[in-house]
Simulated scan of single mutants.
Amino acid sequence: MASEWGIVLVLGVIMVAGASVQRLAGIGFALVSVPALVLLLGPAEGVVLANCAAGAISAVGLAVTWRQVRLAAMVPLVAAAACTVPAGAWVAARLPEPVLLAGMGVLVSVAVALVMWGARVPALRGVKGAVAAGAASGFMNSSAGVGGPAVSLYAVNAGWTVREFVPNAQFYGVVVNVFSVTAKGVPQLPAPVWLLVAASIAAGSAIGAALARRVPERPARLVVLLLALAGGLTALGKGLWNL
């Protein structure tokens, strides 16, 4: 019983931390939470719970910013993601857990490194770039819960400001996470755990909103990315150790 309560407590802390950094930096819930959730719950349950939570957080933000969404730019991203989400779910369901864990670690670590570098890739510009980014993001979101970096790289190469990026990322987050959860199903968790997840997301969002008024955006994003990189490397190490 004590160990079960310990797991529940850690789960709440992960959710609060993920929601806080998402509200603080505009990105980061999945990057920060997925490595910890897959270590705690296993790859299958951890990723789909992250999909549920990230979709909920994006929906809350979108309720305020929906008028700023660029639907014309988002259609190719969303359409491409819809095509690759089933492939990601299929791969995630068939790989052995250590392989999946190591693969998630690699995806998170590489994605974070590219975002930190601010990679400029000509192929990620225009409609073709949106399709490529959406396809990569849909697969990564469904298989590893980390679809955000591909969309972030598209935004960097499209020259979007942070103010332009956030509402569109929230819209994309809602849609792609609905696709991902539909493809894999809702995680089988007790009702009290779901209540804890909801309360943790609400608390984390409130903390992040308070910090956002005091912490400059650039240092906040750097902290989020460094935490995500540490989590990705940890997941990679555990996966390789268990092979």
Rank of each mutant, 00 (worst) to 15 (best):
G6H: 06
L9Y: 08
G12F: 03
I14T: 08
A17W: 04
F29H: 01
P43S: 12
E45I: 11
A59N: 04
G61L: 01
R67D: 05
V69R: 09
L71H: 14
P76M: 08
P76H: 12
P86E: 14
A89D: 08
V91T: 13
R94M: 14
R94I: 10
P98G: 08
G103I: 07
M104A: 14
V108D: 05
A111T: 05
L114F: 08
L114A: 14
L114Q: 02
L114R: 01
A123L: 15
V127C: 10
V127G: 05
V131P: 01
G134M: 03
A135K: 01
G138S: 11
N141H: 09
A144Y: 08
V146I: 15
G147T: 06
P149C: 06
P149G: 06
V151K: 01
S152V: 11
G159P: 02
V162S: 02
V162A: 09
F165C: 00
P167Q: 05
A183I: 13
G185Y: 06
P187I: 10
P187A: 08
L189V: 12
P192A: 10
P192S: 09
A212P: 01
R214N: 14
E217F: 10
A220R: 10
V224G: 01
L226A: 13
L226S: 07
G232A: 09
A235N: 05
K238M: 06
K238Q: 15
K238D: 10
L243Q: 04
